[in-house]
């Protein structure tokens, strides 16, 4: 499916999605509340069939926290990027997608560990790399660690 058709198909499936211009992949911002429904539809729909989540990453964009989903369809060969964002830095939370793509379970644990974004309904949301009693979330831009990070 070419990119223009893919874009239209996604917009018919998820009318709330915002298209982002000039990106490497077809990119959409999805409202946080609609994330689970959207991903579910994108996976189950025969024209999109995104069955492979090849990357899931969290980012602190300064004003807001963002989680990026890179999706690919192994049958149709096209790829798409979904983004969700939240401005709540105290208690950010999104729905989990690890019931849709099992690989998300570890990726979400990593994001929780390093960025402090919680995922609702995640089966086992614990820190993955750091200690259970680690304070703070290192990948946030306002994270301060005077011992381990040397500022130049």
């Amino acid at each position: 499916m070419d990119l223009e058709k893919l874009k239209e198909r996604v917009l018919t499936l998820v009318p709330e999605a915002e298209f982002e211009e000039n990106k490497q992949f077809v990119t959409f911002f999805v409202p946080a509340g609609k994330l689970h429904v959207t991903t579910m539809r994108l996976k189950d729909d025969e024209d999109t069939a995104f069955d492979y989540l090849f990357c899931q990453s969290g980012t602190d964009m300064g004003k807001y926290l963002m989680v990026v989903y890179h999706l690919e369809s192994t049958k149709l060969g096209h790829a798409i990027v979904l983004k969700v964002k939240t401005e709540d830095r105290e208690n950010p939370a999104f729905d989990t997608v690890c019931d849709i793509w099992r690989t998300a379970e570890f990726h979400e644990r990593e994001i929780f560990d390093l960025l402090g974004i919680r995922f609702n309904n995640h089966p086992d949301l614990r820190r993955l790399f750091l200690d259970e009693n680690w304070v703070g979330y290192p990948l946030r831009k306002d994270y301060k660690d005077e011992v381990n990070i040397v500022e130049f």
């Binding site: 990357c55 990453s57 980012t59 602190d60 690989t103 570890f106």
Partner: peptide, 15 residues
């Protein structure tokens, strides 16, 4: 600004 490595072993471990 942000660099994320999607490493194969990470996903392979999850199964």
């Amino acid at each position: 600004y942000r660099m994320k490595f999607r490493t194969p072993s990470f996903s392979n471990l999850s199964i």
